Simulated assay, not measured.
Amino acid sequence: MPPPPPAIRLLVPGNIRHNSGGNVYNAALAQGLEQLGAEVTIQPVAGYWPVGSKEERRRLAGLLTAGTTAGTNTVTIVDGLVASGAPDAMEEASACGRAPWVLLHMPLDEHPDLEVRALRAAAGVICTSGSAAAEITRRHGLAGVRAALPGTKKGPVAAGSEPPRLLAVAALLPNKDQLVLLEALARLRDLEWTAALVGSATADTGYARQVAAAVEQHGLGERVQLPGELTGEALEQQWHAADLSLLISRVEAFGMAVTESVARGIPVIVRAGTGAVEALGLGVEAAPGPSEGETPALPGAVVELEDSAETDPEPLANLLRSWLTDPALSAEWRRRALAGRELLPGWEATARQVLGYVGPKASPGGHSSQPPADGE
């Protein structure tokens, strides 16, 4: 008889209240683990993460050392946004024999010195994308970094709209680059389309005001909606009306909005050089991958955009113009998205993979002998 799954404490950042990809992943993972028989406790950690104050980090150390008893069948997993900037707390827990696992959604670019100490003190590191796992392995020389890609809950096939409806689901943040998207859309006013930029306007109120002002400055007030963060039926209505989704973040470890789009048969445009390309690749029909020199049949497209303060929106505008004016192209992207919808893994696969890493059969010492992650 296999050993019972461990009880799991999942420590998550208490200061991230909008509907972020990390929050969605954590909640879906917990539900998946419970369905596999694990007892899961989600514990928000108060603090201004990452890094936090000295007092917040001291409280985190107390949570890590007091929440479990060494040798028991309980595993602590800490969201990387909390752990990566608090190496002292991680090292204190490790010294007590209670080293937690780290669930890393995105590398902590601002503090690599803190991150490497925190991750070396962990029982193991699980990244939520192969690209993040490869970056952490390259950056810090850690062996045995695991990857557990997000699952997807298949949604109803989107009906689309007339004229075509563009949808960008992401908090209004500088990294998500909604201003560049609006500049590209401003170049397409001669064509018929509408758009919705769905996401929190409170995560960065200054940037959200810039986005709202840009809509008016570009004369797009009749075409572009800014409904704020939506959930439940209101969000489903936006998905159902969409014909094309966009995620052009400057940095993205994975981009769950991509797979959520494909799960509804909606093609996606993503930015080159980000983990969103990996997410889009999960919906590629052909397996194994294409021959050398062959372009994969993505359910959408990858756009090259420079990463600078003055990003040229023209490549995105040209790609959108092609999609809007070429019925054969738009039909092919739609066909690929509908095919890719059937290929996406569910959340049970994610939970099973995580449980395999942290459960009783998992090898001790997450950084000693395992080969670097390759997306597994």
Rank of each mutant, 00 (worst) to 15 (best):
Q353I: 10
A208C: 03
S249I: 09
E342V: 15
A208V: 12
A30G: 10
E55K: 14
P315N: 15
A86S: 05
E135L: 11
E376F: 05
L282Y: 00
L167R: 00
T231M: 15
A118H: 03
L104D: 09
G22S: 11
E222S: 15
N23P: 03
A70F: 02
P227V: 00
W347I: 11
P315R: 10
E278V: 09
G228M: 00
L103E: 10
D88M: 06
D243W: 01
E92N: 06
A242S: 06
V258A: 01
G124P: 09
E285F: 08
E278D: 13
R341L: 14
H367C: 08
T194Q: 05
Q237V: 13
A286Q: 14
R321G: 15
P150Y: 01
L63V: 02
E222K: 09
L329I: 12
R57D: 01
A212V: 07
T152C: 09
V169E: 00
E314I: 14
A263R: 08
P267R: 09
P288Y: 01
A168F: 02
V284Q: 05
L185P: 12
V215Q: 01
A257V: 12
S369G: 07
Q217S: 14
T194Y: 08
K153N: 10
P2F: 03
P5G: 03
W101V: 08
H240L: 12
E314L: 15
R59A: 13
S322C: 13
P164H: 04
E34L: 02
A309Y: 06
V302M: 07
R57Y: 02
A276Q: 06
G67Y: 04
L172H: 06
L235F: 03
E56P: 04
L298K: 03
P13M: 14
G47F: 02
